[in-house]
Amino acid sequence: MTIINEFIKTFIPLFIILNPLAIIPNYMVVVEHIPKREAERFSSRTIISAFILLAIFIFIGRPFLDLIGISTYSFMIACGLLLLYISMGMLSGDPPITRNVSLDSTSIVPMSIPLLAGPGSIATTIVLENNYGISLVFVSLVVSMLVSKILLDNYQRIYKVLGTNGLNAWIRLSALFYSAIAISLITNGILSIGG
């Protein structure tokens, strides 16, 4: 088991659940009419806020849950259910729907956080941290976020290639693997109830 092997095993699930491509429809709505520099600042804020939230969960997620009295398995099952709900909403090709999304390009903490750092991403980081250790997951997070930033900043090129239909198709495909991830979170959660 080389380090690269382990890194890939943390990077791929993390990047899949982060799914920056699925953010692009929402992102486009916000940055369509603003100059490129501002758009890039907005994407930076989005990426950084999601990064900080997820990093906090990587480092102190489980102790925090212990402190407020939530077992890890309950959290996993809850996140799985929420992710399942999100994925059902995506079946019709709409971008993931959560309430707290702020579409204001000037907001300091853009609430595109729930899109990037949604219940699926949070639960996945905790599971990965549990299995592979903090450092590997943290490095994977950094790399994923860098790649996501590059993708967001080049949204126009991506849109040119995929178009609305392509993005819709991608979202439907994402719904499929989100629901698979959700089911695995739920079943693994249930299985670890015994302790």
Binding site: L53, L65, I68, G69, I70, S74, F75, I77, A78, C79, L81, L82, T98, N100, V109, M111, I113, P114, P119, I122
Partner: peptide
């Protein structure tokens, strides 16, 4: 942000 985390916490407590 707190509302978002609160939703997560509420659902987890529920489970």
């Amino acid at each position: 942000l707190m509302a978002y985390l609160a939703a997560l916490i509420a659902a987890s407590f529920g489970i």
